Computed example of a mutant assay.
Amino acid sequence: MPRTKTRFLALACAALLSACVTAPTNLSKASVAAYREAIELNGRLTVNYQKDGQTETLTGKFAWNQTPAAVNVSLASPLGQTIATISVTPDSATLVQGDRAPRVARDIDTLTAQTLGWSLPVSGLRDWLQGYATGADGRRFTASPAANTVTTADGWRLTFVSWQDPDAAKPVPKRIDVARVASATVEAMEIRIVIDPQG
């Protein structure tokens, strides 16, 4: 994979996968019981984005390790070669790629802006992977097979396409499609996240 594409995949995923490291707010009692502060997930993702009028596609694997204090993500090529590691705490975001010096910034949005030249203003994938989001109206959204689509305040449209066990009391997402329409300040982007079955 060319180095420019590798960097883009790492940073696009970093912005999406590392998001905010704070606990969600406005959860109902039932949601609080279902939400987990510490999770480990593996999965795959595909990123489609526009560059010079052409659609570019990148694919990779991820390993997600979340605790109350940090999110650590390892990104790999489709063949399993590690591309980058990302660590996000309330105080900083760090990206490590191969033998390059680590890049550090105060948050993931700043890190992507410094490295890509534009920001991916996403906050919330910590919630999305568990089937939650904050809608454009500021209300807490709990995804289910019957209510599977929401648009966030920062313009991302989430569709929870399939579930690990759709009959569970609080289903866990299996596939999430994320899309953002291009505007004067942001590029169009589509991301498909597939979470591996949890053992």
Rank of each mutant, 00 (worst) to 15 (best):
L79M: 14
A14Y: 03
T46I: 09
T4G: 12
T115G: 15
A179T: 09
A168I: 05
L17Y: 02
T142H: 10
A182L: 03
R126S: 10
A169S: 13
L158M: 07
E56D: 07
V122H: 11
D154N: 11
R180H: 08
L41C: 03
K61I: 06
A105C: 05
D99G: 14
A146L: 12
L75D: 03
G199H: 13
G155H: 03
S77W: 01
L16M: 12
A69C: 14
L45V: 05
R157Y: 07
L125Y: 13
T59R: 15
P2A: 12
A147Y: 04
Q66Y: 09
L95Q: 07
L129Q: 02
R157G: 09
V161S: 08
R175A: 13
A101T: 13
A38H: 11
R139I: 10
A188I: 05
N72F: 12
D127C: 02
Q164C: 01
I191L: 02
T149C: 01
A84C: 00
S183G: 11
N26P: 11
K29L: 13
T57W: 05
W64Y: 13
R139P: 08
L41P: 03
S162H: 07
L125R: 09
L45Y: 06
I86C: 05
P102A: 08
Q66P: 08
V161L: 09
L9E: 02
L75R: 06
L95V: 06
T94A: 05
R100S: 14
A34C: 06
Q50W: 11
L111F: 02
Q198Y: 04
A101K: 13
A10S: 00
V47S: 00
T85N: 09
I108W: 09
W64T: 03
L79C: 12
I39N: 04
A133R: 00
A169F: 10
A153P: 01
A63K: 08
G98N: 09
S144K: 04
R139N: 13
